[in-house]
């Protein structure tokens, strides 16, 4: 077998797929391979898609991908679903909405479980973006879990973050108030044919207006009807506009620095946790400390301090 990193760089789908598996599994081979891929990254444009459940994110992403394909670009899609905290398993069902593009060689879709990561992302998603980038995907789209909570971590990885809402029911506006306002580079109200569209649009506009008065940037709002392909061209234009602004203002570099910093912290965090809780040396220590806490011989803070002083020495 020729070298896996080489094959990823050539864009070989099976190598890309295997490489993603290696990073997801925290395989021992992954770090060295990733270092080699990293040198070839930096070209892909990363788009994050978040928003409430049932907003039609997967369908919207499919239509976006098709639009980019018509412009001759290649696309990588990461669709994230929650991992069950009880079994560690996951049902990854976002693909159902994307099957019509599944045989297009220019589109690569990968479903991932969160595997314990909070904030609507998966721990390996940073690596997956790098892998897609190194493999020559020009557009990378990330779909967050979308359980309706604020999934704000997406901005640490995406160049452009879209928040997708649907008319009616008020869930959408609640979600905005709960923290999605600040992260949106673009608001999309999908399913624009639904009753209540005008009302949701009006509510959102007034929220954006408040934001502008508070001295922040005016976030554009677009209506789409992904099922009927409505508003997709305009959305692509808007994404392009945002991206161009990032480039011309130099903010893209800040974005990228933020991504690398988050990733760096994440890697260190993961390694430290593994070191403390998974490796045999410390495992016994942790057990004996827990015993002490249980018997009230020691408080949890003191116990934590003892572990840290060992790690840090």
């Amino acid at each position: 077998m020729t070298d896996l990193a080489e094959r990823v760089l050539e864009g070989d789908p099976r190598a890309i797929a295997r490489m993603i598996t290696l990073v997801e599994n925290n395989s021992d081979e992954a770090p060295e391979l990733m270092s080699r891929l990293h040198k070839k990254t930096g070209r892909a444009q990363v788009i994050g898609v978040t928003g409430v459940m049932g907003a039609g994110k997967s369908t919207l992403i499919t239509e976006l991908a098709l639009e980019y394909r018509r412009a001759g670009k290649t696309v990588g899609i990461v669709a994230i679903d929650p991992t069950s905290p009880f079994s560690g398993g996951a049902l990854l069902g976002d693909r159902i909405r994307m099957m019509e593009v599944s045989t297009d060689p220019g589109i690569f879709i990968r479903s991932m479980g969160t595997r314990g990561m909070l904030g609507g992302l998966s721990g390996a998603v940073f690596d997956v973006v790098e892998i897609f980038d190194a493999a020559g995907k020009e557009i990378v789209i990330i779909e967050t879990v979308g359980v309706g909570q604020a999934e704000v971590d997406i901005i640490k990885i995406a160049d452009t973050t879209m928040v997708v809402l649907v008319p009616g029911l008020g869930d959408s506006i609640q979600a905005i108030k709960a923290g999605l306002m600040e992260i949106a580079d673009i608001f999309v109200i999908n399913k624009s044919d639904r009753p209540g569209f005008d009302l949701t649009m009006a509510e959102l506009e007034s929220l954006v207006e408040l934001n502008v008065q508070a001295g922040r940037k005016r976030t554009p709002i677009l209506g789409t009807n992904a099922k009927e392909r409505g508003g997709i061209k305009e959305l692509v234009e808007e994404i392009k506009k945002h991206y161009n602004e990032l480039v011309s203002s130099g903010k893209l570099d800040d974005h990228r620095r933020m991504r690398y910093e988050t990733e760096l912290v994440e890697i260190v965090r993961k390694r430290l946790m593994n070191l403390i809780f998974d490796e045999a040396v410390f495992k016994d220590k942790v057990d004996s400390l827990v015993n002490k806490i249980e018997k009230k011989e020691m408080g949890p803070y003191a116990a934590a301090q003892e572990i840290l002083s060992r790690v840090l020495k």
């Binding site: 991992t83 009880f86 996951a90 069902g93 693909r95 159902i96 099957m99 479980g113």
Partner: peptide, 12 residues
């Protein structure tokens, strides 16, 4: 299969 700890991709 999910409850048995596997990651399951369902295609529809």
């Amino acid at each position: 299969l999910r409850d048995a700890g596997m990651e399951v991709i369902y295609t529809g």
